[in-house]
Amino acid sequence: MHKYFQVFKLSLISEFAYRFNFILWRFRNVIQILVVFFFWNSVFSGQNEAVFGYNREKILTYVFGILVLRSIVLSSRAVDVAGEISSGNLTNFLIKPLGYFRYWFTRDVASKVLNLGFSVLEIALLYFLIKPPIYVQSDFLTIVGFLISLSIAVVLFFLVLFLVNSVSFWMPENAWAAQFLFIVIILEFFSGGIFPLDVLPSSLVSLFSYLPFYYLLFFPLQVYLGKVSYILMFKGIFISLLWLLILWFCLSKVWKMGVREYSAEGR
């Protein structure tokens, strides 16, 4: 059996070893969806005009969409990498004939598959319960563009996360702070996880569109909602691919330096 397939299998099994944890985490997700749904639903109730280009249907799709995208793009096991470095557990991987990035990417994918499976179930359930108005994209090229930008987003997030985690090589005791700052604040804000970015002044939005975070959640969703033209879609895919290459280059440099710094200590 191929080694990374075995890693994939083992990741799934170990996620199930924490069955209760996982169920609670999914439960939290459902509650979160409900809260956000009822909030925006009441904001738009009674008026049917668009606010910042969003009417009730589109804002609800945006909110739902972000939640689904979040479980695909942002669900990750690679958040543990910082801990692996500072605890010295990284040693176990460095002495084995195994690609560390490939290992963690596989574990990420396993986690995403599991999360995606569950979120599809939940959303189907919620859909029948509260019957929200959801915008369904039907244009073939747009759907293809959406899937491409989604795949890029997955890899981009992996790279950003790994770069942030690499801080542990130099500051093993401060890694969580870097992670918190980047992932919880910067990333959530600039990726449109907190609110649709285009409610901001357009000059600011176009500035953001040159940052990698923009392509994690906001851009794929904009593509899905049909809010960008084909030209802008291709431009976005091009910029995000460029970021992908830049970050990949940085990560491989930083990682090499980090492993050299690593003294395999701990416990």
Binding site: N92, I95, K96, G266
Partner: peptide, 26 residues
């Protein structure tokens, strides 16, 4: 490399799963 103070076995799983993983890795 065997370190008395470090483990490679997956904590939450039976040891045989880690063995299977090592079989694949090596």
């Amino acid at each position: 490399l065997v370190m008395g103070q470090k483990n490679q076995l997956w904590w939450d799983l039976p040891a045989v799963e880690t063995f299977e993983l090592n079989r694949a890795i090596y």
